[in-house]
Amino acid sequence: MNGLLKKSLSCLALGCTFATAPVAQAADAPAMVLVHGAHFTATAWERVQQQLGDRIDSHAIDLPGRNDHFLPEKVSLELSAASLCSFMSTIPGDKVVVAHSQGGAVVNASLSLCPDENISKLVYVTAVAPLDGEGVFSKLSEADETHYFAGVSFNEQAMRMDISNPDSFANSFAQDANAEQQRWLKQQAVAEPALIGEGTIDLNWERFEALDKYYVFAKRDQIISLESQQRTAGDLDLAASFEIDSGHLPMLTHSKDLADLLVQISER
């Protein structure tokens, strides 16, 4: 039994609670599991889910440590991955898992914890996707870090990444957002548990290689630059890739374009 699995089973034995989704009716088409990135919650996917409508049975997870009882210093990459496994176990049938940003690391870590989960495709939306032994942000650049810290500061006492300058945060994460979208962004963005970014991936290679993988590039992203995205995607043996002319939050600024791409990927 690997260390990642031991930690997660220990957490479950202690009675950790995880976000859960309502059980959906089984259908021929796969369900879609939407995993948010740093500083956001399941609400990040609201506009995409509206665009998906009844074309896809979609489920957006709230990862622990944002709007729940978990203290930030207790929220690790392992706990986040265990939460995702618990969430997926409530959704019957085949699944397409879509990860944004830091969510890509959570998804990759989950493959070791629930290797028998019925997943057919992974979709990375301007996301990190660290491989075995790699850190969550190991493929990002100094420029990415500079843009990130323009609006964020490390709260060492609380082990939390705080949004210290909302205007700079919005401009770095979604410089292409209109005024209404920027207002939404500032209202919905939350502090982020810092320990997740310190995690290292224990990847189930056999499971990972068996899955069809797709990457959606955001051409104007300043948090995970296009160069960093390309460096990440180059190691994934992709079935296909796509582009959106957006900043870091295409689910906010280009929700219809992203939803249409997700439907296209689901149907491949």
Rank of each mutant, 00 (worst) to 15 (best):
V123E: 00
V125W: 03
V125Q: 04
T126P: 00
T126C: 12
T126F: 07
V128L: 06
V128D: 01
A129Q: 02
L131C: 04
L131E: 01
L131D: 02
D132G: 10
G133Y: 04
G133L: 04
G133P: 00
G133M: 01
E134H: 01
E134C: 05
E134L: 06
G135S: 09
G135P: 05
V136E: 07
F137W: 10
K139C: 04
S141G: 11
S141R: 06
A143I: 15
A143H: 15
D144V: 12
E145Q: 15
T146R: 14
T146F: 13
H147L: 06
H147Y: 14
H147S: 15
Y148D: 09
F149P: 04
G151W: 04
F154D: 12
N155S: 09
E156A: 15
E156M: 14
A158T: 08
A158L: 12
M159Q: 15
R160H: 12
R160L: 15
M161A: 08
D162A: 10
D162N: 09
I163P: 05
I163Y: 02
S164Q: 04
N165G: 08
N165E: 08
D167E: 11
D167V: 10
S168H: 13
S168K: 13
S168P: 01
F169I: 06
A170R: 02
A170S: 11
A170Y: 04
N171T: 12
N171K: 09
S172N: 03
S172C: 05
A174I: 09
Q175N: 13
Q175C: 13
D176A: 13
D176W: 06
A177S: 10
N178T: 05
E180L: 08
Q181E: 15
Q181N: 08
Q181K: 07
Q182H: 07
Q182A: 11
R183Y: 09
R183Q: 15
W184C: 03
W184E: 14
L185G: 01
L185F: 08
K186A: 04
K186H: 01
Q187F: 04
Q187K: 15
Q187E: 02
Q187I: 06
A189F: 03
